[in-house]
Design a protein around this nucleic acid. Structure first.
Lengths: 203, 203
DNA sequence: GTCATCAGTTAACGCTCGCTAACATCCTCA
DNA sequence: TGAGGATGTTAGCGAGCGTTAACTGATGAC
């Protein structure tokens, strides 16, 4: 039992360091020896915990996709109405983006390095997550076409996922301030879905 | 002269295919043989045109960064006022994002694979481009702090650069429609910089 | 007509990488 | 006590990589 606990903790430790390294230098740019060194063991020692380097990436991507979807679904059903659901989706996504920066980075960057079966699974989870958003945004902004909504949702993902790209500079807002700002920006962007015309001629 | 023209054209052809492959499978995930095959020659034949694989990536990243900055500066000085300058920056960035998808992808993904000198150069060009945006956005939305403006500019980059991530699905808007939508979303997001409070209590 | 240059080829080198094999150590528990 | 599983280690393999070397054919200049 204690051995099992130690093992799980080691696994998680490896996954966390692997995610960080993959995000920093790319999947192909990191060797198993480096991952091992990051947790204090040698490269081949990793094979006591994972079938291979691919398996680590697969577990990371399936995990983040699944958690995003699960949390998103829960937040939507618990919300009082569409506006509250949208706000909850935005807040939840921001928490993921800020707290799990490396995973968010990997999530849209290294998907093609997976075996086909894993890639299909991750794609399916991602698609369901997008659909969750599209349904909610479509109800909050009924004037927009579904194609517009779908593109806007992807664009808002890009907006919210921008945090990992700027590495902890001092000239940036703190966590709470950044979270609130991203939320306002996302709501502002989606709010533009309502105005179908008259955007060109203000000046 | 004719030989030089042929050579330049070949160089550009190689750069275009290399950008596409790097964006698809990552810098480390593409071999020189594949790049050569994409333009109809063998791997080592590339060394008649480039010093190495690194040099191709460097030329791509320096090129896109420089062109973004140059076009951005030109658009700002040619604009009638801050609002027009911001709109011109947005339109210009969208054109880059849509027309040079692979380069936009590489631009924020493979920067760390460069030699230090090249990386410094690209970073400097990127920073100047960001400053161009920050100055304009700060004038259009004087109520926001500079930290907010800076984070918002990065977020809008993420929004505008989201196009490359969705690969030409049929359920998406066409080029002109997508361009107009992205512009509205970006303006909507930045518009949220003006409302400092009262965003939480609408429902 | 010859010769230099350009643009390509194939062969091969040295290095790195993911992974396996074989062995060592510790912990647990009957 | 001692057998066995869990978790490491080091050595080494086989493949793939970027790059260089040596060579070949075409083309244009004098």
């Amino acid at each position: 039992m204690n051995a099992t606990n130690t093992s799980v903790s080691r696994r998680d430790q490896i996954l966390r360091e692997a995610a960080r390294l993959f995000a920093e230098r790319g999947f192909h740019g990191v060797g198993v020896d480096e991952i091992g060194a990051a947790v204090g063991i040698s490269g081949p020692g990793l094979y006591r915990h994972f079938a291979g380097k691919d398996a680590m990436l697969a577990e990371l991507l399936v995990g983040i996709s699944g958690r995003l979807l699960t949390a998103g679904k829960r937040r939507v059903v618990e919300a009082a109405g569409p506006e509250a659901a949208l706000d909850a989706l935005i807040r939840g996504h921001i928490d993921f983006a800020i707290d799990d920066r490396p995973l968010i980075t990997l999530h849209d960057r290294e998907l093609d390095r997976l075996r086909e079966s894993d890639r299909k699974l991750v794609r399916q989870l991602q698609r369901q997550y997008v659909e969750e958003w599209v349904a909610v945004v479509g109800r909050v902004h009924p004037g927009a076409t579904e194609r517009e909504v779908r593109a806007a949702v992807h664009a808002v993902f890009g907006l919210l996922n921008s945090t990992p790209h700027l590495g902890a500079q001092s000239s940036l807002p703190g966590r709470r301030e950044m979270s609130e700002l991203l939320r306002r920006l996302a709501l502002g962007a989606l709010g533009a879905l309502d105005s179908t015309a008259d955007w060109r001629v203000t000046y």
